[in-house]
């Protein structure tokens, strides 16, 4: 393109063009985020202070009645608030040794293959993976096999234990990855220094390895916990309507009993709890050492 005759004018024009290109590049994403993330969130916030119309649906109002009614779903909250942290903790206990082995012990040429084997289940259908456990724990699976050896009438599916197992199975990869990342970046010389200074392997692990991997642990824990707060499939398929989560309450309120304002209040509460979990986890990990980002893939 030939330069303009007036330099100042040309420069301003090219600046304008640069800004225009930037705006055009960002516009589709911005519109998408506003229309399908921000506006919907504002919508449920407004609904949550409204009233239920007699025929179901929404009637405009400004009341905190929906929030005052939250104890009506106390069982769902209770189950979620117990099983989500318990599930995240169980995930952590299984995930940490695996992440440790992958990051510090596994032979170099196996490391990436093993890591890929962890990532693949994370990106395959949770529905199908949970279904596999329905198959295994259901009447014709393990209980049928146990009946051969004389253990009769053992009920595995539709119990809190089955839900917990499903949670560990479903979310293990998401817990392993951030812990692996923080362990992998760990400065190996620190471990040698600690050993040289006479620390036992256990105290090296506790005061160096574990401490430095805590940001990864916190990231994994909070991610798993937040996703569990909104979980629906696992309690539905493995809890069989006996173990209700907040997700089940939301499906019921929005798709069956059509009490949208109350459902919105529950959803807003869910988001607020998630934000609190994130903030607390972030505080803990920044206090312990610099923040780390997570690689999900």
């Amino acid at each position: 393109m030939p330069a303009g005759s007036q330099p100042a004018f040309s420069m301003r024009r090219s600046l304008f063009r640069k800004n225009l290109v930037t705006a055009l590049l960002l516009a589709p994403a911005a519109v998408w985020l506003v229309v399908f993330l921000v506006l919907p969130f504002v919508a449920i916030a407004i609904f949550s202070v409204g009233e239920r119309a007699p025929e179901g649906g929404y009637q405009a109002a400004l009341t905190l009645a929906q929030y005052a009614n939250l104890p009506a779903r106390a069982t769902a909250f209770w189950n979620t608030m117990v099983l989500a942290p318990a599930g995240a903790l169980a995930c952590l206990l299984v995930a940490y040794p695996v992440a440790y082995y992958l990051a510090l012990r596994a032979p170099q040429r196996w490391r990436l293959i093993l890591l890929a084997l962890i990532v693949i289940p994370f990106w395959t259908s949770l529905l199908m993976r949970t279904y596999a456990w329905m198959y295994i724990l259901g009447g014709r699976g393990i209980p049928a096999l146990l009946a051969y050896v004389g253990i009769e009438d053992l009920r595995l599916i539709n119990t809190p234990g089955a839900v917990l197992l499903g949670i560990v199975y479903g979310y293990l990869p998401l817990m392993i990855l951030p812990i692996y990342v923080s362990l992998e970046r760990l400065d190996r010389r620190l471990l040698e220094a600690s050993a040289d200074l006479g620390a036992t392997p256990l105290s090296t692990f506790l005061s160096v390895t574990l401490r430095l991997s805590l940001p990864g642990v916190m990231t994994g824990f909070s991610l798993v916990m937040i996703l569990l707060l909104g979980e629906y499939l696992i309690p539905t398929l493995l809890g069989g309507g006996k173990v209700f989560f907040i997700g089940n309450a939301l499906v019921d309120l929005f798709l069956q009993s059509r009490n949208w304002p109350f459902g919105s209040a529950i959803a807003i509460t869910l988001v607020l709890v998630s934000v609190v979990v994130l903030i607390v986890a972030n505080r803990i990990s920044t206090r312990l050492s610099g923040a780390r980002r997570v690689d999900l893939i």
Binding site: A43, I44, E231, A267, S274
Partner: peptide, 19 residues
């Protein structure tokens, strides 16, 4: 963008439905 990734699917689902 972080919110779009982290907000549970169930919340994305119902808020999009309502809106």
């Amino acid at each position: 963008l972080g919110a779009a990734i982290v907000v549970p699917g169930v919340v994305i689902g119902i808020s999009t439905l309502v809106a």
